[in-house]
């Protein structure tokens, strides 16, 4: 029976009772709530307001309506940044997904020392990007006898310019990203591999499937939800890459590594165009949301496979 059919007095009493029952729970969520309202909800709403202003946060604040959104159409650096962002995702996501899966299959065998190898592969992932940038800036130096060029020299490949070359800089940073993250996604693949029930393999063998055929018909279909998860997460990460670019190339050479997030950062903090940067942030949000949504739909994230 719904409360609407009760007489008014009883209704009020029911409401009072419900409020009294609710009250003791609010102290448990109040801190969470305050943090989210102050650091997420408020900035998130104010972003739409700021996006309609031209402001440097100091002296200048001028209402410009939708100008900041119109301006994007003519911002050639933005177009390049978006191109670079998608290119980076292409250079980063497929190798990362494939490498982490292959390594997971490798370390999933019942051999001595597997735990050790898993930990070793995870190490770059817990190391912060500033440390990795400090190290790899030296490794990727264009000098002939810098580490990578020295190793290339051993197999007869001439010295490369890596971060200083407009065609190699983005790929170098993607490579560093793959090296940093494959251990993390290896662990996720591994959890999925180990969750496949052994009887399914036995049944497959009874049906005459061995080796690759067994993987083709048992492993791969069962890994699809994990594959969807890994693809979506790595893509969202790729679209937001920043640290390595900021430290290693500063968006250069000649804007070759200026990605969407770097462009937003630079518009805000190098040119103090905070209104425009807010409008760009809304664009970034929409792009990520749409790509994640499409991938979700297409890869069928939540489908039951068992």
């Amino acid at each position: 029976m719904s409360s609407a059919t009760l007489p008014p007095v009883a209704q009020r009493r029911a409401l009072t009772k419900r409020i009294l029952k609710s009250l003791p729970w609010y102290p448990f969520i109040v801190l969470n709530l305050v943090v989210f309202v102050v650091f997420n909800l408020w900035p998130w709403l104010s972003m739409f307001q700021t996006a309609t202003f031209k402001t440097d946060l100091l002296s200048h604040r001028e209402f410009v309506g939708l100008d900041n959104f119109v301006k994007k159409a003519g911002d050639e650096l933005l177009h390049l940044a978006l191109k670079n962002t998608f290119l980076f995702a292409l250079l980063y996501v497929p190798p990362l997904v494939v490498v982490s899966l292959l390594v997971a299959i490798l370390v999933n065998q019942k051999l001595r020392g597997m735990k050790f190898f898993r930990s070793v592969y995870f190490l770059p992932n817990v190391t912060n990007i500033a440390v990795l940038a400090l190290v790899f800036r030296r490794f990727l130096s264009p000098r002939d006898d810098a580490p990578f060029n020295y190793l290339l020299g051993l197999v007869g490949i001439p010295a490369q310019r890596f971060l200083l070359d407009i065609h190699q800089a983005l790929a170098s940073i993607a490579g560093l990203g793959v090296w940093q993250s494959f251990g993390f996604f290896m662990v996720i693949w591994l959890a999925a591999l180990q969750a496949i029930p052994q009887p399914l393999y036995d049944a497959g063998r009874v049906d005459g499937a061995y080796g690759w055929r067994l993987h083709r018909h048992v492993t791969i279909p069962l890994l699809r939800p994990t594959a969807a998860f890994v693809v979506v997460i790595t893509t969202i990460g790729a679209l937001q890459e920043f640290g390595a670019i900021f430290i290693l190339t500063g968006g250069g050479p000649v804007n070759a590594t200026t990605t969407a997030v770097y462009h937003i950062y630079s518009q805000a903090f190098n040119f103090t165009r905070f209104g425009y940067a807010s409008a760009l942030s809304i664009l970034l949000f929409l792009i990520i949301l749409i790509i994640a949504y499409v991938q979700n739909r297409y890869l069928k994230f939540d489908e039951e496979v068992y």
């Binding site: 937003i264 805000a268 905070f274 940067a277 990520i288």
Partner: peptide, 24 residues
């Protein structure tokens, strides 16, 4: 309502919030 609000915040990419957070 709060639960779904939290889920909503969870899907917000954090880099898109950087500028408004700084302004605040």
């Amino acid at each position: 309502v709060l639960f779904y609000m939290f889920v909503g915040i969870l899907i917000m990419p954090e880099t898109a919030l950087i500028i408004p957070q700084y302004i605040m």
